[in-house]
Design a protein around this nucleic acid. Structure first.
Lengths: 232, 232
DNA sequence: ATGTCTGATTGATAATTGTCAAGGTCATCC
DNA sequence: GGATGACCTTGACAATTATCAATCAGACAT
């Protein structure tokens, strides 16, 4: 692993309070790899061999059943994924593939579990991280069950606007087909949803979105901190 | 708290490996209460005051938005709920109400967090529990996004048949309207889904279900361990 | 520039799911 | 027994969402 990457990892919530020597052991066992876009990293059902940390780029978590496929989440730097499978030593429930060129750190699950058993601060950090992941999963499910696809899209746009700095104009972070899958709809339906949002002042030009009147859009979206606030 | 309840709690995965004196402190801070059916226990958005443990009865976790409401999960003895909110000291994302007469233990969140910070074995147990909760949430979301309501119902019936011992005939555990909400559909749609399943050998008589030919039903349901296996 | 590819859009249509209104069933309570 | 009420079911209809086929737009390579 490149020495300049170590401080970044060290600074993750997950590792920040870990004992020095323990962290060094983990860091030495870890691999850093660079992957091109669209590379499959893990496949659901496989045994959990490595904890993954995205250092650069972006990773799509997705799942399939009976020939269908859906995008569950996007992992952006710097964060881990499939922590739960690693901890429980259970098969992955989701597959992962790079969306862009990505640098990813792989730590053998075995070593993570050892650190987890031996280092109390680390165990506590894992809990906080997991509780966070759990809560965002609950929010996603609430969004799916309580909202129509149009409402989900409206809330997604408002949230993404915040994330990107709050400007009226911003770019979508990935292909629309993936956004559609993430929101639980088809690409065709997403196209039509975007057109419906014109009535609420949303202008779409390729990947570039302009929210003309956020208050107007908010009247439709009715965002709630218990669904849309990423931090709560 | 009644002395006979203590061993049962003690035996939960969550508390089994906790230090003796630490457990005693928690047990002394805890309340045991009996609630009639349909009593609201917690409301989403509230601050997390107590970790709840269902000792007897059943509790519905549900969520609302914009006048709509959906059932997220049913908690049955003996297990905890809203652990994640307690750990993160964050507002509840779901409301809870008793389905039946229930006995519930309440442990002040403050004490749980203290135990969590001081007792490493407990912290590790919390992680395992949370990882489990997270994974079942992922499975639920995969089911929602990848399956039609008919497929969700078919899989639910097969799973519930297993849970209740594997007999061809068994009873639904709660009202159909709640089952509908849990499966993400309306009561009317559930009624029609049950009728569609007649073609696959499912007989419905009130709350009593008979699966005439499980293999036939399985051809429709296509159950997958990565969605339907509660343990994996 | 031309062709090729991938992803996005559009239109037509169908399937799925939801809504509303009306009955039906069953247990419970006077 | 008959009324009451809660829940479930059914039918007719509407909204939402998906599917299929065709076209379009832009990126890229030849």
């Amino acid at each position: 692993m490149r020495p300049d990457d170590i401080p970044m990892i060290r600074n993750l919530d997950l590792f920040r309070s870990m004992a020095e020597n323990r962290f060094d052991i983990l860091a030495q066992a870890a691999y850093l790899q660079t992957f091109p876009p669209r590379v499959d990293l893990i496949t659901e059902g496989d045994r959990s061999d490595f904890l993954h940390i995205v250092v650069e780029g972006a990773v799509d978590l997705f799942a399939g059943w009976n020939g269908r496929e859906t995008s569950m989440a996007t992992v952006r730097p710097v964060s881990t994924f499939i922590l739960a499978a690693t901890i429980r030593d259970a098969p992955y429930l989701m597959s992962a593939r790079t969306l862009e060129k990505s640098r990813i750190i792989l730590i053998p699950s075995e070593d993570v579990r050892t650190a987890f058993d031996a280092d109390n601060d680390f165990a506590r950090a894992v809990v906080r991280e997991l509780a966070q992941c759990y809560r965002s999963m609950v929010k996603a499910q609430k969004s799916l069950k309580l909202r129509s696809s149009l409402e989900r899209l409206a809330n997604y746009l408002l949230r993404h606007q915040q994330r990107t700095g709050g400007n009226a104009t911003f770019d979508l972070p990935h292909e629309k087909r993936r956004l559609a899958s993430f929101l639980g709809m088809t690409p065709e339906n997403l196209s039509r949803a975007f057109r419906s949002l014109q009535a609420y002042g949303v202008v779409v030009d390729g990947m570039q979105i302009t929210i003309g009147d956020a208050d107007d859009l908010r009247k439709l979206a009715k965002p709630s901190p218990l669904i849309d606030d990423p931090t709560s």
